[in-house]
C-alpha cells in the first residue's frame, strides 16, 4: 500500500504572524431590532406563525417551515418563566484560557415559545426540568446582556 511507503516528512516549522484585518457593523434585522429594543423595557418578545402555530424566541421575520412572513401582529411578550432544558459548567474560554471562575451555561425553554434559548444559568444546584425565571440587568442598552440569565 502506497500509504505505508510514502511517509510524510515531519519538518521543523517556522511561522509568520498574521491577522484577518476586518471588523463588523452587524444589523439586527427586521425581527431582531424589535427583540433587542424590547429588552430595554424588560420585555421578552416571541412571535408565532399563524399557519403552524410555532413560536419563535427570539422572533423571526418569517416561519422557516411554512415560509409565511410574520408581521407585527404575530409578536407578543412572554412572561420570562422557563424550564431548564440542559446545562453545563464550563472551565475554559474560546482562546483556551482557564476561566477565573467556572461558568454555568443553560438552555432554556421559555413558556410561550417553541424554541430553546441559551443564556447564563444563575442557580447553585441545577437540575434539568427545574422552573427558572429571567433575571434582568440594571443597565439595559438593547443587548443580549440586558438579561443576566435565569434563576
Amino acid at each position: 500500500m502506497i500509504l505505508n511507503k510514502r511517509n510524510q516528512h515531519k519538518l521543523p516549522t517556522t511561522s509568520v504572524k498574521g491577522d484577518f484585518p476586518v471588523t463588523y457593523h452587524y444589523t439586527a434585522g427586521i425581527a431582531g431590532e424589535k427583540f433587542f429594543l424590547a429588552l430595554k423595557d424588560k420585555k421578552l418578545l416571541a412571535n408565532t406563525c399563524d399557519s403552524c402555530k410555532f413560536s419563535y424566541l427570539p422572533p423571526k421575520m418569517f416561519c422557516e417551515d411554512c415560509f409565511d412572513e410574520l408581521d407585527d401582529g404575530t409578536y407578543k411578550e412572554v412572561d420570562g418563566t422557563a424550564e431548564l432544558f440542559s446545562y453545563s459548567e464550563v472551565f475554559y474560554d474560546h482562546r483556551g484560557d482557564k476561566l477565573e471562575k467556572p461558568l454555568l451555561l443553560g438552555l432554556f425553554k421559555l413558556n410561550g415559545s417553541s424554541t430553546i434559548f441559551m443564556h447564563n444559568l444563575l442557580v447553585s444546584e441545577p437540575k434539568i426540568g427545574m422552573k427558572v425565571k429571567v433575571v434582568w440587568s440594571e443597565h439595559r442598552v438593547g443587548s443580549i446582556f440586558d438579561l443576566k440569565g435565569f434563576e
Binding site: 444589523t27 439586527a28 434585522g29 427586521i30 425581527a31 431582531g32 431590532e33 421575520m61 418569517f62 415560509f67 412572513e69
Partner: peptide, 13 residues
C-alpha cells in the same frame, strides 16, 4: 436593515 437571511427570504419568497 434586513439581515442576510431576511434578504434571502424576501427574494426566495
Amino acid at each position: 436593515k434586513e439581515t442576510g437571511k431576511e434578504l434571502a427570504y424576501y427574494s426566495a419568497k
